[in-house]
Design a protein around this nucleic acid. Sequence first.
DNA 1: CTCGGAAGTC
DNA 2: GACTTCCGAG
Length: 270
Amino acid sequence: MQCSCSTSVGHLSSPYWSRTVLFPDWAYKPTWSPGSRQIQLWHFLLELLARGEGGAIGWGGEWGEFVIRDPEKLARLWGERKGKPHMNYDKLSRALRYYYNKRILHKTKGKRFTYKFNFSKLILVNYPGYPPPAPPAPPAPPAPSHQLVQSGSLLFPHLTADSGLPLCGRAGSVMDRAVQPLPHPFLLPCCLPEPLPVPRALHGPFPVISTPAWPGVNLRELGELSLNACWLHKSPAGWDVNHYVSRSLYEGAKQTQLQDEEKAAGRRLE
DNA sequence: CTCGGAAGTC
DNA sequence: GACTTCCGAG
């Protein structure tokens, strides 16, 4: 099977590539992409969803699904943002339909005003080397230099990986575990402390990617992580990311592991 | 409502 | 390129 994930080989040549998650290309675009100059509709939608903006739009029952509760209001907000006073839902929905081919969105058939982000491709993460040798512990989380969603948590409903699209990987690979339903797709190892050597399991031809979260990370606890803390931004120096969530994930994992080790040690003493 | 072609704008 | 505008069709 051909992998359609973002597989820029350039990343692989970097010692940092193991930090990157192979999301679809569109997921990497910053708020203002070079070619577009203006905010893109899907960014705007995520922004509204993150803020729970006036009930015009809200998350639906499934993973990545959202419902436009007030189409004309949403259109008005979009029109205001774009400086298009004559925007309406008919036009906005045409823009949404252009996302079908781009695989950014698809329609939830049979449900009015209901669409779904193709987040199923976003699952994944890999941080195969956890725990790292000697994780540095910076005094405070670094200030975010780029954020796609500026503020507010993007609270997802309870999410289940519905496998809207095939995941990358081959039978028998580590991907097999990643295909298991996950409560939340946004597990990003991208900003963990130290780059790791390319794991042997990931050498070789694409497709590549991913193992589930690190040992000790309780996926269920990730259900309320904010997406805003996870967006990646490509800077000249490499992937620039907001560390908050990953840091807390990492610390959480470390904590859990310490607890496990303590328990194990306790058992040994008994 | 939903879809997608076609042409136009920035 | 990413819409916006218009519109006929299902």
